[in-house]
C-alpha cells in the first residue's frame, strides 16, 4: 500500500481524489454507491450569496465523449447552505469544500466570509470560471486584472485554504494562474468547462436555452492535461487537475503532468462509484511501479 496522502497548502487529503463541483451534489446523493469517507475531498455544488434559479431548460446536450451544460449556478444561496446542508455533511470524515461563485467582487467576499465561519469547511474553491452566467463568473476569470481583484478581495475575508478554479477559455491560462498566485491564492484548480455549442439540425435551432454551454467529459482531457502541465510549470502553488478524468490511468497522467491532486467531474454521472475506484487504481499504479508515495510522481514528466 503506497502513501496516498497529499497536502494542498495546509489542506490534508487522505488521497488525491476530490469531486468536482456540480457533479457530486452535496455528497449525500452518492452515499448509496460509495463510502464518502474513502474520497479525499468533496467539493460541493457552486454556492452564491443569494439563491439562484439557474438557466431555463434545456440545460444539457450530449456530445461525442462528453456533454454540454448551461445550468447557470442553480443553488439555494449561502444562508440555506449554512442552515440546512452544512449540518447534514459537517461530520462526514473527509474534507468538505465549498465552491463559491458570485456576480460581483462584493458577492464573492460576503459568501466566502460566511463559509469562513463554518468550522468543518477547511477550504473553498473560488469559481471565477463559470461560463453560464451573464454577470460575474467567467468574466472575472478571463483577465489577469479581473481574476487578481476578486482573489485579493476574498483573501482579506477568507482565512483558510483558498483554491481558485480557472477557466480554459483564455489566451494564456498560465498568466491568469500567476495573477491569482500573486493575489494570494493558496492553490489553483483547472480546468473548468470549455465554451461550446450544440445545434439541432432537424429543428434548425440551438439546443441549449442560452445558446452556449460548457463542455466536459473525456473530450476535453487532452486540453486539460496540457493546461495543467503549463500551469504547474509556471506557478509555485499547488495545482489541482481536472477535466475529463474517468479512470485511474487518467488521474495518474494529471499527477505526472504536475497536479498535486485531481478532481473527478462528469465521470460521476456514468459511474457514481468512480471516485473510490480511481483512488484504489492510483494505489495499484504506485505499487506496481515501485513508488512509495503519490507525491513521488507529481510533475515528474519532463
Amino acid at each position: 500500500m503506497a502513501d496516498l496522502r497529499v497536502d494542498i497548502a495546509g489542506l490534508h487529503l487522505k488521497n488525491p481524489v476530490l469531486t468536482a463541483s456540480g457533479t457530486f451534489g452535496y455528497g449525500l446523493e452518492f452515499q448509496d454507491f460509495v463510502n464518502l469517507e474513502d474520497i479525499g475531498g468533496i467539493i460541493v455544488k457552486g454556492t452564491t450569496l443569494a439563491p439562484r434559479q439557474g438557466n431555463a431548460y434545456p440545460r444539457m446536450a450530449e456530445t461525442a465523449s462528453g456533454m454540454l451544460n448551461c445550468v447557470g449556478l442553480q443553488n439555494k444561496g449561502v444562508d440555506y447552505f449554512c442552515s440546512h446542508i452544512y449540518p447534514q455533511i459537517k461530520d462526514i470524515q473527509t474534507n468538505i469544500l465549498v465552491n463559491v461563485s458570485g456576480n460581483s467582487p462584493e458577492d464573492y467576499v460576503e459568501c466566502a466570509a460566511r463559509i469562513n465561519e463554518l468550522e468543518h469547511i477547511p477550504a473553498i474553491e473560488l469559481n471565477i470560471s463559470c461560463p453560464n452566467v451573464k454577470h460575474g463568473g467567467m468574466a472575472f476569470g478571463t483577465t489577469t486584472q479581473g481574476a487578481a481583484s476578486v482573489v485579493r478581495a476574498v483573501r482579506q475575508a477568507y482565512h483558510k485554504t483558498l483554491i481558485v478554479k480557472l477557466s480554459p477559455n483564455v489566451t494564456s491560462i498560465s498568466d491568469i494562474a500567476l495573477a491569482v498566485q500573486d493575489a494570494g491564492a493558496d492553490a489553483v484548480s483547472l480546468i473548468n468547462t470549455l465554451m461550446g455549442m450544440a445545434i439541432d439540425a432537424e429543428k434548425r435551432r440551438r439546443i441549449l436555452s442560452i445558446g452556449t454551454g460548457g463542455l466536459s467529459g473525456p473530450a476535453i482531457k487532452p486540453v486539460a492535461l496540457r493546461m495543467v502541465y503549463e500551469v504547474a510549470h509556471a506557478v509555485q502553488i499547488p495545482v489541482i487537475g481536472l477535466g475529463g478524468i474517468s479512470s485511474a490511468k487518467d488521474a495518474v497522467e494529471f499527477l505526472l503532468a504536475g497536479a498535486s491532486a485531481i478532481e473527478i467531474g462528469t465521470a460521476n454521472f456514468l459511474d457514481p462509484a468512480i471516485t473510490v475506484k480511481v483512488a484504489q487504481g492510483i494505489n495499484e499504479y504506485l505499487d506496481r511501479c515501485g513508488f512509495q508515495s503519490v507525491k513521488d510522481i507529481v510533475g515528474i514528466v519532463e
Binding site: 456540480g22 457533479t23 457530486f24 451534489g25 446523493e29 452518492f30 455544488k45 434559479q53 439557474g54 431555463a56 431548460y57 434545456p58 440545460r59 444539457m60 456533454m67 451544460n69 445550468v71 442553480q74 462528469t266 460521476n268 454521472f269 457514481p272
Partner: peptide, 22 residues
C-alpha cells in the same frame, strides 16, 4: 421525461419549472 445526465440529482440538467422553482 426531461433530458437527463446523471439521474441522481447532482447535475441539475433535467429541471422542471414548478411552483417551488426549478
Amino acid at each position: 421525461e426531461n433530458m437527463m445526465a446523471c439521474g441522481l440529482g447532482a447535475c441539475l440538467c433535467c429541471v422542471e419549472d414548478t411552483v417551488e422553482g426549478n
